[in-house]
Computed example of a mutant assay.
Amino acid sequence: MTKKHSWKHRLHEIIYEADTKEGKLFDVVLLVAIIASILLVMLESVNSFDEKYHNYLNICEWIITILFSIEYILRVISIKKPLRYIFSFYGIIDLLSTIPKYLSFIFIGSHHLVALRALRLLRVFRILKLTRYIGASNTLLVAMRASKAKISVFLFFVVIICIILGTIMYMIEGAANGFTSIPRSVYWAIVTLTTVGFGDIAPQTPLGQFIASIIMILGYAIIAIPTGIVSSEIAKSSKDENNTQACPNCLKEKHKNNAKYCYNCGSVLNE
């Protein structure tokens, strides 16, 4: 292993992984910096606070922006194929959360877009090394994909029910009670069935109120059905443990604990 390869490999291990103390510390510091940056932008939007501490807030924001710029560059140079990171989801988010402050030289007010850094908090699962939750999120994703056909049929059934009930309520209540059209009545049925209940439309007749009561009770049963479908698929899913190790070649994460090669590109994980 050459010296050049050694420091790049070490840098990659610290920046992209959370299985070491240094890697976890790096990501925790990054998380704190992201939160601090978001708080600065929020405080800057308060006129009374900004008028008093504008220079201080601006200096702090520039310090954090420079740190994020350095971090972005380090992420690019620490991997074998930089374009994979640059055009990845996190790569685009990292870039978008860094450039707004620089754009403020050209477009006034654009620096407020640094609030996009909130999206970087998605790294929290890897940062805190919650491997069991990473595995759980994987299982949930697989279960939802397996359930999409059943859930689609269920949602189609719910839409039909709402159309039927909305039409019935339109005939019973009429325009005098706010049900001015079938689409508006269907809107009321959806709002009632989902137990949201904005209260902008309400049935006035005894029969309409009776049907509304049935819809409200039905709403609680409908909430439980998708949960049961997904839960059934989760029970069928595997529960293999994954770690936070990222492939230095393709940046894929969530490898098995004892994996030596990347499941995506076949590259060696531990060199």
Rank of each mutant, 00 (worst) to 15 (best):
V46D: 05
H9W: 08
R132Q: 12
A175E: 15
K252P: 00
I234W: 07
G174E: 03
D94G: 09
C250L: 04
T227I: 15
P183H: 08
T20R: 13
V28N: 02
A149S: 11
R132P: 01
G228F: 10
A36N: 05
F198N: 12
L11R: 04
K81H: 13
V124Y: 07
E253H: 06
V28Y: 11
V76E: 02
G197R: 11
I229C: 05
I66F: 14
D27W: 15
I106R: 11
F107T: 09
I108E: 15
L31P: 00
K129D: 13
L40K: 01
V124F: 10
I38R: 00
L25H: 07
T167F: 15
A149Y: 06
N58M: 09
K80W: 09
I34Y: 04
Y16F: 15
G91T: 13
V76S: 07
H5Q: 10
I223V: 14
L128A: 04
I15F: 05
S48E: 11
D50R: 13
I222H: 05
Y263V: 09
V76K: 05
Y56S: 11
G23Y: 03
P203W: 06
R84K: 15
L39Q: 03
I99H: 04
N58H: 09
G135L: 04
K256Y: 14
L30G: 11
R117M: 08
L165Q: 01
N47R: 10
A175F: 12
R84F: 13
E17A: 06
I79F: 05
P206Q: 04
R123F: 11
L140Y: 07
G166W: 11
S69N: 03
E253C: 01
N257W: 03
S181M: 10
S45M: 14
C162G: 00
E61S: 09
G199P: 09
M144A: 10
K81Y: 14
T2L: 06
L11C: 12
P206A: 05
R123H: 14
N47P: 00
I34D: 00
F26Y: 15
V114Q: 14
A212N: 15
I35K: 01
L113P: 00
V186R: 02
L31H: 03
A118D: 00
T139D: 02
I215E: 06
I64P: 00
R120P: 00
Y220P: 02
H12C: 01
D19I: 03
S137Y: 13
I161G: 00
M42V: 13
I229Q: 05
S267C: 04
L251P: 00
A149R: 12
L113K: 02
S213L: 14
H255W: 08
I93Y: 09
R145T: 07
I222S: 05
M1L: 07
I223A: 09
L116F: 14
G208I: 05
D240E: 15
F105L: 13
L141T: 12
W7C: 02
H255V: 00
R120I: 06
V153H: 08
V186F: 10
R145M: 06
V153I: 11
K254F: 06
G135A: 11
V46E: 04
N55D: 15
Q245C: 03
L155W: 08
L67T: 03
I34P: 00
I151L: 14
D94A: 13
V46A: 04
N270M: 09
D240C: 08
I86V: 15
